[in-house]
């Protein structure tokens, strides 16, 4: 028993070093709900998917400030678009459109990924061009088709506000700065983990947390090889992969855009053509449409594409449905999802 608890501790510590913050946020009191389940059965320690830690170390003051800023339309050029516009926390952290709409109705060029669990990802954006959540924020703020803003304007607007100057001063000695705005938003994003999914309960030893069909789906997910890329705590989000690993996706789809070049745009290395960050599947059940181009409307559609181009093999519909059932068990909990 000592060993098991230790292992779980190790698992949760595994990511907590990323967060060298001082306050421990216990989301939802989830830990209390879960602890009997931890004791219920032997946890599955050797699985390639690991449960999301139940708690995350974040600075609650920064989280509160970051939450306000995340919903703050004044971060955009014409005060109409906030982070939450495209990353709606009530709908899985996305807007569920093929590409998002920025200021003045401008259309994005790539499907918006969810903001939930983004703190667990090893890099940000589909092409991984930002190394941290802080870095990531510069792009949407300044991109003319997204929030179309300039930092000096953003900072000026925040200075003019009644509450922001005081809130910043209470946390940061130097008050409202570009780095501090980014840090607060990033801290809020780091708090957006979704622990205690049914699948995590299963991993923690509750054998009945998922049904026979869902277990079968998980077995198939491993057997067909999806697990080679979609693994780890976030079920993805810790590596890059070429889209079209076995058969060329872009030859079939045609009309190749700059966004389709993926990581090549960042490194210029020909080996990185059409290479993308493997997306996390944690919230996949809530975040249609799928793929970087948003062309797959349902999870089954996305699986079809994955089988054809990434796995290079066929699967009966029954298997794909079982895998969809499994994917649905990956969705965890967060207070923001219920608000």
């Amino acid at each position: 028993m000592m060993l098991t608890t230790k292992q779980i501790m190790k698992n949760s510590e595994h990511f907590s070093w990323q967060f060298t913050r001082n306050v421990k946020l216990c989301l939802l009191g989830v830990a209390v709900i879960c602890s009997p389940q931890i004791l219920a059965g032997e946890p599955l320690l050797d699985e390639p998917i690991k449960p999301i830690p139940l708690t995350v170390d974040v600075d609650l003051k920064k989280v509160a400030l970051g939450r306000l800023l995340f919903h703050e339309p004044r971060l955009s050029g014409d005060n109409t678009v906030s982070c939450a516009t495209c990353h709606d926390l009530k709908t899985g952290g996305v807007d569920r459109t093929k590409v998002s709409i920025g200021i003045k109705g401008r259309k994005g060029i790539i499907n918006s990924p969810t903001v939930y669990n983004s703190g667990l990802l090893f890099r940000q954006f589909w092409d991984g061009r930002a190394e941290t959540l802080e870095d990531q924020i510069d792009w949407p703020i300044q991109n003319p088709i997204e929030m179309g803003s300039q930092w000096p304007d953003v900072l000026a607007k925040l200075y003019d506000d009644d509450k922001y100057p005081g809130m910043f001063k209470a946390i940061y000695d130097d008050g409202i700065t570009r780095e501090n705005v980014k840090n607060a938003i990033a801290e809020f994003e780091r708090s957006l983990i979704t622990p205690n999914s049914r699948f995590d309960q299963y991993l923690r030893g509750d054998e009945n947390a998922i049904t026979a069909k869902e277990k079968r789906g998980y077995m198939l997910f491993k057997r067909y090889g999806c697990i080679s890329c979609h693994q780890g705590v976030a079920v993805g989000g810790n590596m890059f992969q070429v889209f079209g690993a076995i058969n060329s996706y872009f030859k079939v789809r045609g009309n190749i855009t700059e966004a389709d070049m993926g990581r090549f745009n960042v490194t210029g290395n020909p080996e990185d053509k059409h290479v993308f960050k493997v997306p996390s599947l944690r919230m996949v059940a809530l975040t249609p449409p799928y793929l970087h181009d948003g062309t797959a409307k349902t999870m089954l559609d996305a699986e079809d594409v994955m089988f054809k181009f990434q796995l290079g093999r066929k699967a009966p519909k029954k298997d794909k449905e079982a895998m969809v059932a499994f994917l649905k068990t990956l969705v965890g909990e967060h207070p923001e999802m219920k608000k």
Binding site: F15, Q18, D46, E131, N238, M239
Partner: peptide, 16 residues
């Protein structure tokens, strides 16, 4: 077998 890449990815921020 059954390995995941979390640990390898976890080096990134420290190295960075």
């Amino acid at each position: 077998p059954n390995s995941d890449f979390d640990e390898v990815a976890a080096y990134l921020p420290r190295v960075r």
